[in-house]
């Protein structure tokens, strides 16, 4: 069932909080992958606050849906989502990147409650998600597996090994997302190593391909729901996003792939986010 206006309003309110938390966590961490942490916000919020069956009281609940953040450097954006969902206290985010902390820039499943897989090395997440989806089928469980990939990450050959396998095994219980923010570390993906036509590549690999504005909950919701109804194939949703979304001075700037924030930069960033959500 499509998201109602009220639900969209609630999700936007959560996204506002998450964006603020990503900025603060980056500041506490002394730097982080804030650009991609901000481009993926709506995808994660839609999943964790509407579509995924998870139980913060029982993080290992067998029947929960799984999410693999294949773009593992997005950890600085995922940890605030897991905290907001209630897997752990937001206070813990203040230790991000500190020596001995539960949280480093690439999150560790054995330390972070609610996390389904340790990721960080790019190209690893999709094959792991394929294994989880196969496991669900083998166990006759109806949990879904979601996998969020970065666009630059699609240059990794192992992504396409996983893509081929997911189609071969007809994993319609697997939904992939490509956070298409157009940038990898060294610049625009199309200058560094061109990925286009991305959709045609996934189609050729045997996937259903959907596209939408990755910051629009209504559009995202429709595609996530459509993916659940499609048979016989895994589905990938190419989410058109903006790197650094919400912070005016970061938006669409590859140099904000990774960065640190001093107090005044963080204040400006929070103000920019508040303006985005008409909070000022």
């Amino acid at each position: 069932m499509a998201l109602s206006e009220k639900e969209i309003g609630t999700l936007n309110e959560i996204a506002w909080k998450i964006r603020r938390s990503v900025v603060q966590t980056t500041q506490w961490a002394g730097g982080g992958h804030i650009g991609g942490g901000l481009s993926q916000v709506e995808i994660l919020v839609a999943l964790y606050f509407h579509y995924m069956k998870v139980d913060p009281e029982n993080p290992q609940w067998e029947d929960r849906d799984r999410m693999v953040l294949s773009k593992g450097h997005g950890g600085v954006g995922l940890a605030p989502v897991l905290a907001e969902k209630g897997f752990f206290s937001s206070e813990l985010l203040k230790t991000f990147n500190h020596t001995g902390s539960l949280f480093g820039m690439h999150l560790d499943r054995l330390k972070v409650k609610g996390l389904d897989a340790s990721t960080g090395s790019l190209g690893h997440g999709l094959p792991i998600a394929v294994g989880l989806a196969l496991g669900a089928r083998l166990k006759n469980k109806d949990w879904r597996t979601y996998c969020i990939m970065g666009d630059g990450e699609l240059a990794e050959g192992s992504i396409w090994e996983g893509a081929m396998a997911a189609a071969h095994y007809k994993l319609n219980n697997l939904t992939g997302f490509v956070d298409r923010n157009m940038h990898c570390i060294d610049g625009c993906t199309e200058d560094v190593m061109s990925l286009e036509p991305i959709g045609e590549k996934w189609t050729a690999f045997g996937w259903n391909v959907l596209e939408c504005d990755g910051h629009d909950f209504k559009a995202l919701g429709e595609k996530i729901e459509k993916a659940q109804q499609l048979d016989d194939k895994p589905t990938v949703i190419i989410c058109h996003t903006v790197k650094g979304k919400g912070v005016d001075y970061m938006e669409d700037k590859p140099e904000w792939h990774y960065g640190g924030l001093d107090t005044s930069m963080a204040e400006d960033a929070l103000k920019s986010i508040d303006r985005m959500y008409n909070k000022i």
């Binding site: 067998e62 799984r66 693999v68 389904d116 897989a117 190209g123 690893h124 999709l126 094959p127 792991i128 998600a129 394929v130 294994g131 989880l132 989806a133 196969l134 496991g135 669900a136 083998l138 166990k139 050959g157 192992s158 090994e161 996983g162 081929m164 396998a165 071969h168 095994y169």
Partner: peptide, 26 residues
């Protein structure tokens, strides 16, 4: 046969999928 997966000539994928299956309890 239902518990056997031949993933083709793709060793990175082989171990990634194995990790996923282990995470699923196998």
């Amino acid at each position: 046969p239902e518990r056997f997966f031949n993933v083709g000539i793709a060793e990175q994928n082989l171990f990634g999928i194995a990790a996923g299956l282990a995470l699923a309890g196998y």
